[in-house]
Design a binder for these strands. Structure first.
Lengths: 248, 248
DNA sequence: CGCGAACCTTGATGCAGATCAATTGAAGGT
DNA sequence: ACCTTCAATTGATCTGCATCAAGGTTCGCG
């Protein structure tokens, strides 16, 4: 793994790595205390399923560390990823009793779960939570729409470049303060997961990654360590204009 | 048009056809009065652009009657529809200064607009609005994810069937109380708009509609009037199981 | 060290849908 | 009734990605 993520749960909300980005970001000390009473941590191993679509779901929660995917499956087995859950992302929908999607841990995963009933209660009483959740949901909706353009109109090569630039950008903003020069990051997904993300087959994903490597757009060490020597080049390959969809 | 939609704005919120489904659905009488002070109606003709992506936007609002589309465009002209706005749907994002997408009226359109600043103010003060907006945004997110499966994994024929079943279902719930027997509705989109919706070309849309007609899945009067003799058959063609993604 | 299981790469072939192109049909204007 | 315009249909051909198939690589485990 890239950074030695603590696989253990944080002791208190004060220690929590997602304290200022998750659904609790706006909460005051007293509100955190309330949340503390209804929360519990759960750990999942890479590959484990967190919930199956259709299963009753008596909690909602936040990804603390690790990565999970949200996927939809048709009866004949075709699957499409519809969400990529990173630390601080929210899982579940207040007011809904059953899971709408499969949630699968792709790396070891720590979740901060809230019992659903009391959480819904709190949402009605403390506007800070509902406000933050609205903001996060609007962001997710924007991301989903960006993704729809990728799925509907981009070529396989552009799709791969788009995915890489998303992961690269996230890594840059998250980790180091975006020093320029070659960016490096670890791809958190298998070729198959990337295919499910992009509406492709895993063979096509593999071929296009090889092609981008051959053309010098990316460099690879092993199968997962990616270096991007020229980020603007990557954005151009993704079909994005160079300042890449940064809307305020 | 299907039903003689009033192209004029309603006199008061009490008359308003979307009173109980829009962002104001949960508001009490006094809250409506407040909203009334910051709202104004705008009319658009079919084909007119409501806002261009990137333009400053000093209002948010609801579709009162008519249909609009949300689209994204790449520099080379490829476009993807990312939202289909029906009566009661919300346009704009509180807290954002510029439009993120092109909004185009596909039929004559009436919008109920709120000046952005005071609307944001009200959102902070009256939880009823923020609550309803959260609920609507979560619904839109679900719809977007459903749509991602369509874009990423369905065949052209399945895509068309999916779109038809969405329009059919909406029409059924909206209009008559879902009397079974053959459903009928008017397609509110041109072949090109359907293509933009589904990530196809307009030729493919045309061919697949002809094929569905030939196979008796749908019947057509003119180019826009669709009859569906057997809705379950249509759902099967869409690749949905027969109770079609009705999650609570 | 050798074996098996995931995961990935690469090649050959086929097909669904894009592209290019021509025609038809319907609605509005004069 | 005729012309223009815009939307839709239909045909012919091309191509990007899927599909089918055969290795290759890496890693854990006996």
């Amino acid at each position: 793994m890239l950074n030695e993520t603590l696989t253990a749960a944080p002791r208190t909300c004060g220690d929590c790595p997602i304290r200022h980005r998750a659904v609790c970001a706006r909460c005051e000390a007293d509100e955190l205390e309330q949340l503390d009473k209804i929360k519990y941590y759960r750990n999942f191993e890479a590959g484990q399923t967190v919930i199956w679509s259709g299963d009753p779901m008596d909690f909602v929660g936040s990804v603390v560390s690790g990565i999970a995917t949200l996927t939809q499956t048709m009866e004949d087995g075709r699957t499409q990823m519809v969400g990529l859950l990173l630390p601080s992302d929210f899982v579940g929908r207040p007011g809904r009793g059953a899971a709408a999607y499969d949630v699968v841990a792709t790396t070891d995963l720590v979740m901060c779960c809230f019992r659903k009933k009391p959480f819904e209660q709190m949402m009605n009483e403390t506007p800070h939570i509902a406000q933050r959740l609205l903001e996060m949901t609007l962001d997710e909706l924007d991301a989903a729409r960006e993704w729809m353009l990728v799925l509907g109109r981009k070529t396989a090569r552009e799709k791969i470049a788009s995915l890489l630039s998303i992961v690269a950008r996230r890594n840059a903003t998250l980790h180091l303060g975006m020093r320029d020069g070659p960016m490096q990051f670890v791809l958190p997904l298998t070729r198959e997961a990337m295919a499910d993300y992009l509406g492709l087959t895993l063979e096509t994903v593999s071929r296009q990654i090889s092609a981008l490597k051959k053309d010098g757009v990316i460099r690879l060490e092993g199968k997962r360590n990616v270096t991007v020597p020229d980020f603007d080049r990557l954005l151009a390959e993704a079909g994005d204009d160079s300042d890449g969809g940064m809307l305020v």
